[in-house]
Design a protein around this nucleic acid. Structure first.
Length: 463
RNA sequence: UCCUCGGUGGCUCAAUCGGCAGAGCGGGUGACUGUUAAUCACUAGGUUGGGGGUUCAAGUCCCUCCCGGGGAGCCA
């Protein structure tokens, strides 16, 4: 007999005379003469209840079954005479596939703290909350591909190992095949030449520069993959390994970029609400009671768009101005408290801040006609802060070369990047969105460590 | 990296002014013929994060290290 997954069994239209269910025992309740088993197989958040009459043989098996054990049950799918569920399995046979010792199995039937569950990251997907989280994560991943594919974007696999030591963001992880001894005996300048690639190599911090090359060939493209930052930032919003979506559009400007980011965020919310209602319900009920209102608010309203200059002025003039720890000032980056004020207090919705001072943004962002600002954009959302960061790219060779030189970098290192401006350059724009941050926004979960299966953070690499 | 709050049974926490280390849940044993994180009774379980110090006496005070949470910086 073929296994029926619990999701399908619970969606049955009529009773089934013979059914095979496999899964993990969430609870066992014994009475005189029979037992109830709640089984979950991960196919959905709900368990199926099996009722099993006691016979000497079955009691012998049931005695070895505890919370956490994996079992295989055959029987009949019938309408449940009890309250609380439509269907249940009246079991005929019960087989113990894998026992779980009750004294040492760490998950109990009660709620556990997120902190404790992080210490057993290998078992937490067996809980309702993390099961729901990682089903949503899978669905969100699919939704991203669907969104871009439907719009005619091509998915580009940009490299994980890179040679460019400056992609414009953050500290990088060094990649080397040299052993520790060789490394310590070799002079810093000579290490690269002796290494696998004949030069120093790192884990990518962004696929953007590569994606630009493909946008200027295939038109509209996106990357979706892991990225790595060696920053020792210890916050609930940062991880050393995280996933990023980076679309890049040829013949597009900053407005197109802003439109795309807004459309994407709204699409992803709608997709998850439509396809993961049961899993989302858990987060709306137990994690963030305002979640549905927040998501509705984001879907139904257009995002506020404001220039950096206007945003600074607004912050300087607002009632809270004197209470900011950091004074808002033209030429300085917006602080967390400023972002929160804009999205949570003032506009009460997502805000796109654009046209930033050239001094605080990387070399590849397009210089505006005023000569003082670049065509950059940050999408800020309540609670999460920066969800998306992007820009129209500098397509003019001379301006780009000057920017690279001005920032103390060598144009030689970017020869292939500059080639795209040398041969058939075109206006183009793109952005990056943190996948985990989108997931946090969707679920109301406030710690990035709880939206990624095995989180990598400073001093933490157990799993 | 800085600021801040924590670390007590498997989990979540309590312990007054420095004076006998406790509860709920979970576990074990038993009861119960439709339970719903079942219920009821009984029961076992502790080097109070590590090291050092003060004291007649330290979970509690001091020093130090480790680990975790929250905030900041940086960012996605």
């Amino acid at each position: 007999m073929k296994r029926t997954c619990i999701k399908d069994a619970l969606n049955a239209e009529s009773s089934v005379t013979e059914i095979l269910i496999k899964g993990w025992v969430r609870t066992k309740r014994d009475s005189k003469g029979f037992s109830f088993l709640e089984i979950n197989d991960g196919s959905c958040i709900k368990n199926i209840q099996a009722i099993i009459d006691h016979t000497p043989e079955i009691v012998a098996v049931l005695e070895k079954i505890n919370t956490g054990a994996s079992v295989s049950i055959t029987g009949e799918l019938i309408e449940s005479p009890g309250k609380g569920q439509k269907w249940e399995v009246r079991g005929k046979t019960v087989e113990l596939l894998g026992a779980a010792d009750a004294e040492t199995f760490p998950l109990q039937k009660k709620r556990h703290s997120d902190e404790f569950l992080r210490t057993i990251a290998h078992l937490r997907p067996r809980t309702n909350k993390f099961g729901a989280m990682f089903r949503i994560r899978a669905e969100l991943s699919y939704a991203i591909h669907k969104f871009y594919r439907d719009k005619g974007f091509f998915y580009v696999h940009t490299p994980i190992i890179t040679g460019s030591d400056c992609e414009g963001a953050g500290e990088m992880f060094r990649v080397t095949s040299l052993d520790h001894e060789t490394l310590s005996k070799t002079k810093k300048e000579e290490q690269g030449a002796r290494d696998f690639f004949g030069q120093e190599s790192h884990l990518t911090v962004s696929g953007q520069l590569s994606a630009e090359m493909y946008a200027l060939s295939l038109g509209n493209v996106y990357t979706f993959g892991p990225t790595f930052r060696a920053e020792k930032s210890n916050t609930p919003r940062h991880a050393a390994e995280f996933w990023m979506i980076e679309p890049e559009m040829a013949f597009a400007d900053l407005d197109d970029n802003m439109d795309l980011s807004e459309e994407m965020v709204k699409y992803l919310i709608a997709h998850i609400l439509e396809h993961c209602p049961d899993d989302m319900e858990l987060f709306a009920k137990f994690v963030d009671k305002t979640l549905m209102d927040t998501l509705k608010n984001i879907s139904e309203n257009s995002f506020e768009r404001i220039t950096y200059t206007d945003a600074i002025e607004l912050l300087q003039r607002c009632k809270k101005a004197s209470k900011f720890e950091y004074k808002p000032e033209y030429g300085l980056d917006l602080q967390t408290e400023h972002e929160r004020y804009l999205t949570e207090k003032h506009f009460k919705k997502p805000v796109i801040v654009y046209d930033y001072p050239v001094e605080i943004k990387p070399f590849y962002m397009r210089l505006n006609d005023d000569g003082k600002t670049v065509a950059a954009m940050d999408l800020l959302v309540p609670r999460i802060g920066e969800l998306v960061g992007g820009s129209q790219r500098e397509e003019r060779l001379d301006v780009l070369e000057r920017r690279i030189t001005d920032m103390g970098m060598d144009t030689e290192d970017y020869w292939w990047y500059l080639d795209s401006r040398r041969f058939g350059t075109a206006p183009h724009a793109g952005f990056g969105m943190g996948f985990e941050r989108m997931l946090m926004l969707l679920t109301g979960v406030t710690n990035i460590r709880d939206v990624i299966p095995f989180p990598r953070t400073p001093k933490s690499l157990e799993f």
